[in-house]
Design a protein around this nucleic acid. Structure first.
Length: 444
DNA sequence: TCTCTGCTCAC
DNA sequence: CAAGTGAGCAGAGAC
């Protein structure tokens, strides 16, 4: 908390003493374990001042641009609303799933047996409506309306309200003691879920800009860090060699699974391989995979089988994690961060299944968190000791964002890439991609 | 005003 | 039965 007025410190960052208490509660009784004590002293405590610096620094937002964006959104939203009420034959509160459900499924009878939520309402969730879009033009208008409404309410109109009048910048708060896996979380505002996937969402990301015309934003993100971790932890030769040869892991997986040369992999094959690669980390079932791809359940089941035949040590590793959790009641990351799984021996198969997926996912997601935390500590130490003017602003799980004076850009890229790639010796190369831009979208 | 539900944004 | 980790919005109902 250096060089920051006291009134500013307490506004954005919880004081260090409070964080220490939160952390001790977070780790609870395991503080006596050697690994946990070391994790606490070597990672979590040094990270406190790094996060404080980032929170106090804040980030610059282009408010005039967001206000223009909001006007356009308002027009588009009204247009969609008119078309939807016309098609429905009545007006209602479109933001209410409780009112929308009966319109779609009782009045327009979009489908025979509508999916219900756990409370018995009709489900109008995105995956359900996407599937029904071909039944009636009102459906895609509703989905479009929802997405624009989300952008306007959650980001375009909300973010400018978060600007601190003293600094003129937006200051998130990072919570170090919330996520079960060791990840950070971000709130007030959450700057870890700024849109990027859709074209209209990308317009929002453009509102995050450098502090002035002498700076640029630099984004540095780990390439496929979770898959590299599962490759390293499982020691599967096929997956390790793909990373050692710096191959595109999804194409390499597709080539192996569909038994075609790397150059002959089609877009659809790569896409399905990508879905399985991510699914493995989350513990996906054949049913889940079939929902996410164009495959039926039999094909999805076959694909998963072929996947495990391709990367046999992955299956063994997953089994080891589940067995370890059953025996010890917890699983651990590369730095010994534990997640306790009280339901791992539950009689209830659904509850037990969820705990088993946690046993696989927590070490992967948590090890990625360990590694980026080490990188953040190392980077901030150098920025401070070597008197850089550049500032680390944001962390988004596998990405760090910096505000960089133009005359530091070239050298800082080298520093950040090197510190991130060498933060931890994993046994598989860590690769960091760096981008620069006059806004956060361009920096990707 | 508070809490829960349904939904959707990110990695 | 069925994909992990979060935060925040509006609606709806309890008080």
């Amino acid at each position: 908390m250096r060089d920051v007025p006291i009134e500013q410190q307490t506004e954005y960052a919880v004081e260090d003493a409070d964080v220490t208490l939160q952390l001790k509660e977070y780790f609870q009784e395991e503080m006596t374990t050697a690994n946990t004590l070391s994790l606490y002293q070597k990672v979590e405590l040094p990270l406190v001042s790094v996060l404080t610096d980032m929170e106090c620094e804040g980030i610059n937002l282009d408010v005039a641009y967001l206000q223009e964006l909001s006007k356009i959104l308002t027009t588009d939203i009204l247009q969609l609303e008119t078309a939807i009420f016309e098609a429905a034959g009545e007006t209602f509160n479109l933001a209410s799933p409780k009112q929308l459900g009966p319109i779609l499924f009782d009045k327009l009878k979009l489908v025979d047996k509508p999916k219900k939520t756990k409370t018995g309402q009709y489900s109008t969730a995105e995956d359900v409506l996407s599937y029904l879009a071909k039944e009636h033009p009102i459906v895609s208008d509703i989905l479009d309306w929802r997405s624009l409404q989300k952008l306007q309410n959650t980001y375009v109109d909300a973010l400018p309200k978060e600007i601190n009048p003293k600094t003129g910048r937006v200051h998130t708060i990072y919570n170090q003691a919330v996520a079960a896996t060791g990840r950070l979380s971000s709130n007030n505002p959450n700057l870890q879920n700024i849109p990027i996937r859709t074209e209209r969402g990308q317009q929002v990301r453009k509102a995050f800009i450098p502090r002035d015309e002498n700076h640029v934003l630099m984004a540095a993100d780990y390439s496929q860090i979770e898959l590299r971790i599962i490759a390293a932890l499982s020691k599967d030769e096929g997956m390790l060699s793909a990373f050692q040869n710096n191959e595109d892991i999804h194409s390499a997986t597709a080539a192996k699974v569909f038994n075609v040369p790397l150059e002959a992999v089609t877009r659809a094959q790569r896409s399905n391989a990508k879905t399985v690669n991510f699914g493995i980390v989350y513990g996906v079932s054949a049913f889940g995979l079939s929902q996410q791809t164009d495959l039926n359940r039999t094909e999805a089941k076959e694909l998963i089988e072929t996947y495990y035949a391709t990367y046999p040590k992955l299956r063994a590793y997953i089994q080891e994690q589940v067995d370890f959790a059953r025996d010890h009641g917890y699983v651990a990351t590369v730095l010994g961060r534990r997640r306790y799984l009280k339901d791992i021996n539950s009689q209830n198969a659904v509850v037990r299944g969820a705990a088993e997926r946690n046993a696989v996912n927590a070490p992967i997601q948590g090890s990625a968190a360990d590694i980026i935390k080490l990188a953040m500590i190392a980077i901030q130490k150098r920025l401070r000791n070597e008197h850089w003017k550049a500032k680390m602003l944001l962390q988004v799980h596998d990405e760090l964002v910096f505000d960089v004076p133009k005359d530091e850009v070239e050298e800082l890229q080298v520093l950040v890439k090197s510190e991130m790639e060498n933060a931890f010796e994993l046994g598989v190369p860590l690769v960091v991609d760096i981008g620069l831009g006059n806004n956060w979208l361009e920096a990707h």
